[in-house]
């Protein structure tokens, strides 16, 4: 359903800061795939997400989503089909607006102003927002009219998740979306993510620095280095894989030692 063919992106070409962030990257995602992505900092994981989301246009290559060529479709149009969560829980929500208003803006993706740009949020929609919020189990449904800026990071990330999936996206991209949360909240948001993805059958890409998580969640794991995919595993091979195997594969694929503290540290914690 998502097809990335041979995309490349070089930042600051022709200067001393020239950086080849994506190097002829090719990736195909099947319908309903939940793919976890690992790789050290600077490997190009977020750049790939930006390329898919349309934050910039690629220098070369081709991107297709659900049979439609989106290589040169602007970002705001792609976001109709692509949901995205960032590591920073503050990024996906508007702090000065109430929970209800935030949800109303997110819900615009479905209606596309079809009910008219001057229409207001209907009572039925409000009831639907409430229902969605209660699924989070955070008591947010009783705080619909309080500003989002007053919520905690975990609550905001859960709300962002809800906003990104309320209108079911074709593709959901999670960029370390639980990294900034405390372990308890992270587990809760992660469980919620898993539940929503399974229930709605959403195709998903998830960046994580936690090796256990990378193998436990989803049905496929890819590893990136220097703007390329160096390792791709799924099916029974993946089921029998341990964190140690994954690290070894990385060293082999990248041709150098895995020297990312965050990954080495996060292999030790259970979650």
């Amino acid at each position: 359903m998502l097809k990335i063919e041979d995309i490349s992106k070089t930042f600051h070409p022709g200067t001393v800061n020239e950086k080849k962030a994506l190097d002829h990257l090719t990736l195909e995602l099947m319908d309903g795939d939940f793919c976890t992505i690992v790789g050290s900092n600077g490997a190009g994981k977020s750049t790939m997400f930006n390329a898919i989301a349309g934050s910039f246009y690629c220098d070369e290559g081709y991107i297709e989503l659900d049979g439609e060529d989106i290589t040169y479709v602007p970002e705001h149009k792609r976001s109709r089909y692509i949901g995205r969560l960032f590591q920073d829980p503050l990024m996906g929500t508007a702090p000065g607006m109430t929970i209800e208003e935030n949800l109303a803006v997110a819900y615009l993706r479905s209606s596309r102003f079809r009910q008219g740009i001057f229409s207001r949020v209907s009572r039925r929609e409000k009831a639907m927002f409430r229902e969605h919020l209660s699924l989070l189990g955070m008591g947010l449904e009783d705080r619909m009219s309080s500003p989002v800026g007053l919520l905690s990071g975990g609550q905001r990330q859960a709300l962002t998740l809800l906003m990104a999936t309320m209108v079911t996206p074709k593709l959901l991209m999670l960029d370390e979306h639980t990294a900034a949360l405390d372990p308890g909240t992270a587990a809760k948001v992660l469980a919620l993510t898993d539940q929503i993805i399974k229930e709605r059958h959403i195709s998903c890409l998830m960046v994580t620095h936690n090796m256990n998580q990378a193998l436990e969640m989803g049905n496929r794991t890819i590893m990136m280095s220097d703007g390329r995919i160096v390792f791709d595993v799924s099916g029974s091979e993946r089921e029998n894989m341990t964190v140690g195997d994954l690290l070894e594969h990385f060293a082999a694929g990248a041709g150098r030692q895995f020297n990312n503290d965050r990954i080495l540290l996060s292999t030790r914690q259970e979650c």
Binding site: E75, S79, G83, A94, A106, R109, M163
Partner: peptide, 9 residues
């Protein structure tokens, strides 16, 4: 929040 607006299409 500009990021949220872009994400909301």
């Amino acid at each position: 929040s500009m990021a949220m607006v872009r994400a909301s299409s």
